[in-house]
Design a protein around this nucleic acid. Structure first.
Lengths: 229, 229, 229, 229
DNA sequence: CATGAATGAGGCTTCATTCAT
DNA sequence: CATGAATGAAGCCTCATTCAT
């Protein structure tokens, strides 16, 4: 016998769940990362974040304080996650070259699965206020530091083997290569989107082929210089 | 009784210049690029642009129609300028390798001198409305197309020479390398800002050393593959 | 296996006291008076009151119904206390003049010790809703009534003694003097704050010197009138 | 022949007048004083001020910056006006006693006609933020300073004539009397509202009768002291 | 041609109040 | 009895855009 008094507006959708703060907070951040990623910090609207998180706007402010605080919290969380993924993979990568490979592969894998995270960290318009600018700069620095560390180790590892004409590469070069690598990787996340058949590992192999071989050969003394004039 | 201090409008400051439309328009775009670059599209305020251009707000609307139109005009102009600089240099570069070098050097030189231009083109938050998104995508595509063309020519140029173990590289690979190059170059504009002693040419040489040598050797059959697992 | 750190709710801090309703209520009112006094009715926030009272917000609503109810309760309690202090002192003051003196001294003493109380009663912005406005008006009237009564008695006491040129003072005059006295006293509470060395009794003597002597002499026929024009 | 095309919605009420900034600014302040006076700073709503001024809200912000700025501007203007009225009258008042009389009469006259002005200056809830608190304090100090000055002059003027038992009154006493006077005057503005038949001059005479005669006699040596215990 | 004056619409934030446990 | 979780309603402020001169 079917219940007659089944409430007509029985939306199983919004049971107004009562969740503990810590859980809700994470859900809010999840929603915020999605929206900030889709629209950018300024164009993002707190209402949309709240709606996507399935709560009302005041909860966002109760838990995160302000739109700026919300954004900063997103950046911190996503930055930590990305760095953790990178470092964890690298730590299991064996020799320096393997570590760099593993780290980059983890990076491409992570970004492929959490595109929003990367967009929030690296695709925001400049100068949105001091705290935001600082937080973004810190996040980007921490990514760059990881990569620079691995490149540096790779150089040190490959360096001693270099023969007579070997080029001496130092810290500045590691930084340079790291910048190039991170920038290339960033840009390649777009490429990946248009080539869904390419796995993160395949992309990593392609990138290593171009950049690592280049670097390795430079270390080995093969120097390119401007053709003539 | 004659009034002595009669001054109808003799402010020697701000002579209320009567300029031809085309000149005015360029001045407005100059101001707009500065402001959009500093703040990003959303955070930029039309008042600030008008003030920086030395005119009143209605003039901006009279000439460019809307904030969106203003931004689109900026993107078009800056994109055209950048591509022109790139292509012009490349056209005078001689053989494919020299063309790529010249193009990249021109790029770094242009960005070093017109940072705002690059920021407007490549550092805007996503999804600011369809027309803007489309215009930005077009601008980025046109840059990418230039680079891809040169890379492709370079591959074709180096390819036939490749010996037995040579790898066959195609259009997809050129696109991949172009993405990596553009991304690396973008990221390196940041690196350049912190290394003002490095000339655009020096940066180009560094980048060619890493990426072009890598590519050349890949073409020559030196393939990197994941160490073991 | 017994859990060792089993602690159901043993926070020695904040023992979650189970207090009888009447006590709780008074504690809430204490906190409310502090906060209303510091911020004013509108700027006061219920959260702050609850926190200061050491309980949760719903308790405030359970006990006092609403912010407005809370404020009204504060006004009633503080008004009653002030009037009681005044009347008690006056009742022990002997002759009319002594009663006025004692009442005023009690007033200054009370306000010196319970500044918040006075601020809540007399320093609120106008028109915060009908009930509040009414309650405040009533409180102020009750203070005024006390003073008017004493002034009236003082006039009646001194009046009959007045000689030939004596001025006839009536109810309207008592009201006038009472207003002047209360206003002066209010303003002098500020003066007292900047002169902490002056005891409430000293302030009362000063005030009596100026106002009572003035009134007494007026009763005795010394009338001031505008110099000439 | 009557014009047929007389616009149907010809509200002579809101012709959307185009006024120069300085005029509009004053109109906004007029409206703001009314609303702040009626509701108090916190309860006042900017929309209501804008509506009363016959403009839209953004104009208020364009001209006055913020609600706080608007309030501060009100306080400054009203304070200046009141002090001007007071000082002007006093300056024409002849001897010290006449000056005090004239100043007080001007005060009561001003407040009777511009009640809002006084309410904005003296009936705001405490602690609405540092700038507001500071501005109000300054305004009140400036009023008090005027009165203190006159009282001081009055004391100096009457002092030398005092006979043997004369009491020495100093700066602190002038301040005390000024506080009492201003407080009494404030309170009496309420009394006046309920006694519309009493002219400002009449109120002034009453107040002088009580307070000035009191003070004069104190100067002459008539000291009141607490009856007995 | 040029501008000072003006506004509709929308976003961030707060707060009194209530529910579910 | 007591509270952590939650929200509707409202207020401040900004900004792209237009009008009248």
């Amino acid at each position: 016998m079917a219940r007659v008094t089944d409430k007509p507006d029985d939306k199983p959708d919004k049971p107004r769940r009562r969740l503990p703060r810590s859980v809700r907070e994470q859900e809010i951040l999840d929603a915020a990362v999605r929206v900030f990623s889709k629209r950018g910090y300024r164009a993002a609207v707190v209402d949309e974040i709240a709606e996507l998180a399935g709560i009302s706007k005041p909860m966002v402010y109760l838990y995160l304080g302000s739109k700026e605080g919300l954004f900063v919290a997103c950046v911190r969380r996503e930055s930590a996650r990305l760095v953790a993924a990178f470092r964890e993979a690298a730590d299991a990568g064996g020799p320096p070259e393997g570590r760099l490979w593993a780290g980059l592969a983890a990076f491409f894998g992570y970004v492929a699965e959490h595109r929003d995270s990367w967009v929030v960290l690296h695709r925001q318009a400049p100068e949105q206020g001091d705290e935001i600018a600082g937080e973004l700069a810190a996040a980007r620095r921490s990514v760059m530091a990881e990569v620079t560390g691995l490149v540096d180790a790779g150089i040190a590892d490959a360096g001693p083997d270099a023969g007579g004409g070997a080029v001496r590469l130092g810290a500045q070069d590691a930084e340079f290569v790291a910048h190039a690598l991170v920038g290339a990787a960033d840009s390649l996340t777009d490429w990946m989107e248009r080539h869904p058949d390419e796995s993160p590992e395949a992309v990593t192999v392609r990138l290593m082929n171009v950049m690592w071989i280049g670097m390795r050969n430079v270390l080995a003394g093969e120097v390119w210089s401007r053709p003539e004039g």
